[in-house]
Amino acid sequence: MNPTAAAVEKRSFGSVHMSNYQLLRIYFIEAKFEFIRSLRNPGFGMPFLIMPVGLFLLFITLSPLPESATPAQRMFLFTGMAILGIMGPGMYGFGAILAGERQYGLLRLKQALAMPAGAHLLAKFCVALIYAAVTIVAMIVAAELLGRISLTFPQAVLVGLTLLLGVLPFCAIGFAIGSRTSAHLAAGVTTVVYMPQLYLSGLFFPMPPSISWLALFMPPFYLNQLVLAAGGAEHMFIGNGYVHVVVLATFTLLLSWSAARSMARGS
């Protein structure tokens, strides 16, 4: 018998206690391999890292702003493209991929084995945050270097953090889709939910007055106004900024709670 096999044979059943370090390591490993996996997925990794910045650069090139452009005009395209960039990883990472894992037994296996509660979902959330952070930093740097926006450093940090926290509602939407739909339908359903939000929330152009009220039901609208305010640009708060934060937080919590219940019933 070789040395490794001998080592296997000598071991006995030990304690089932795990140290805090070992528990934290589980969360780290889950997140690490979720990220590696996403990068290797040709339909997820590079498209979500490159597409938002690429599109932003393309639009900047195609539609240069006049020198007299106001901060609001300067920020408008930037915030729209940045929010588009952070929506994708949150919604698709949770939606389509989670639906497959749920339907084809991976979550059931992990629940039967000793995965700590929530480690799998937390890993997906971390991956969405990483993708969002890369997108946000790349877009702020590109926009500053190309003179598209002119933020002070504190403003840039505040814009970045607002966008980063803004990932949460989109993770919740993806979670809700992934917890309910079949693997075959999840990608389509995510797209159906994703695309109208881009339009109806007025991210890229003002909405016609007759349907502008629909923006009130679109999370990107609330986030967009918060980011514009953080960047010192003209914005439109419903009430004030706290109302927007409360709306987004409530939306995120309710949707996540509902999805978690649905998953618990499904298991």
Binding site: I36, R37, N41, G100, E101, Y104, G105, L106, A112
Partner: peptide, 10 residues
């Protein structure tokens, strides 16, 4: 289990 989906990329 009888069959289970594991990440094909890993």
């Amino acid at each position: 289990f009888q069959d289970v989906f594991l990440a094909p990329e890993l």
